[in-house]
């Protein structure tokens, strides 16, 4: 890498901080929008940085120090994918309502930490958030996030809004 001027270095650092801020905001949004029973899923979001070669184990609420620093080399500045945000919980796809549970949910013996948004009976093989009215003789299930909360966040405009807010907060400051 050729020598960078101080201005160039500042701009690159600012850009990286903006991207990290956006990633942090999205992780906090997802943690707040998603289901919370014991808190494991909420505390399992992470931002993997391909350019930095890893992710930092963290828990909600996520801070900027939970997001890896990015190199400011030209190669890394040109990288299209700066972060991959994912959830490391083994049952993440079920919590995201993308897959049905492989086995029936079991009551863990304690009440949910998050607010219950639906209570009733989940049909056999139904998604996590697929809870209808209580059926006679049916199960008594509770959900702490509506069905398809993740798809709604990603596809319904809120993630795009989080991106804009991150840029506003960091780059225009």
């Amino acid at each position: 890498m050729g020598a960078l001027s101080n201005l160039e270095r500042d701009i690159r650092n600012k850009l990286n901080k903006t991207v990290r801020t956006v990633a942090r905001n999205i992780m906090n949004d997802l943690a707040e929008a998603g289901p919370v029973w014991g808190g494991e899923f909420r505390d399992s979001w992470e931002a993997f940085a391909p350019g930095a070669g890893g992710a930092i184990p963290a828990a909600y609420p996520y801070t900027l120090s939970d997001i890896p620093n990015l190199p400011i080399t030209q190669r890394e500045m040109n990288r299209a994918t700066k972060f991959i945000i994912s959830n490391r919980a083994s049952y993440a796809a079920v919590a995201l309502d993308l897959e049905p549970p492989r086995e029936e949910f079991r009551y863990p013996g304690y009440e949910p930490e998050g607010d219950v948004v639906f209570r009733g009976t989940r049909p056999a093989g139904g998604r996590r958030g697929n809870i209808g009215p209580k059926q006679k003789g049916g199960t008594d299930n509770r959900s702490t996030a509506p069905l398809d909360w993740y798809t709604t966040y990603v596809r319904g405009g809120k993630m795009q809004r989080a991106l804009g807010k991150g840029v506003d907060l960091e780059f225009r400051a």
Partner: peptide, 9 residues
């Protein structure tokens, strides 16, 4: 068929 419509913004 099950159709779910959600509002984001």
């Amino acid at each position: 068929v099950r159709i779910n419509i959600t509002f984001g913004i």
